[in-house]
């Protein structure tokens, strides 16, 4: 299991990956695992009205990892809503983030595991 950011030859990072780097158009060729790093909360919310198959309420954050001089952001569920902007969080792996069979997206079309974030 890993929480991958994807890097092009010019050093730009994204997560999730893209066929071409959105910044420079080069192919992305490397991955950087973020799973053992901590990140800073950019913003967060706790959603009370959630779609079928999603926990209720659902706290979600955008977080930012520093990788050398570059930064890369992630979105993910929060373990709980006890966070503020600027807090440090760490990734925690979860096998199934929502029920793949309950929503409109085809269950075989994508992965359903991933990382929640927990305040350090």
């Amino acid at each position: 299991m890993s929480l991958d950011a994807h890097r092009c030859p010019n050093g730009h990072l994204t997560s999730p990956p893209h066929t071409r780097c959105p910044t420079c158009g080069e192919a992305q060729t490397e991955t950087v695992d973020l799973a053992d790093r901590t990140a800073e909360v950019v913003t967060w919310t706790e959603s009370q009205a959630t779609p079928p198959g999603v926990r209720q309420p659902n706290a979600i954050a955008i977080v930012e990892f520093a990788v050398g001089d570059e930064t890369v952001r992630q979105i993910g569920q929060l373990v709980d809503a006890d966070v503020e902007i600027g807090d440090r969080v760490r990734p925690v792996h979860v096998d199934e983030l929502r029920d793949p069979d309950a929503g409109i997206r085809h269950p075989d079309s994508q992965a359903w595991d991933g990382y929640r974030f927990e305040r350090v």
Binding site: S15, P16, V42, T43, W44, T45, E46, S47, A49, T50, P51, G53, V54, R55, N58, I60, A61, I62, I75, G76, Q77, I85, L97, R98, G103, R105, S109, Q110, A111, W112, D113, G114
Partner: peptide, 23 residues
């Protein structure tokens, strides 16, 4: 897919953006 699997909705984007804006 990286957003959808977390149960991200358009209202949740709005909540996150509003929090950042007010801050």
């Amino acid at each position: 897919p990286a957003e959808y699997k977390h149960g991200v909705t358009l209202p949740s984007f709005a909540g996150m953006t509003a929090r950042r804006y007010l801050h």
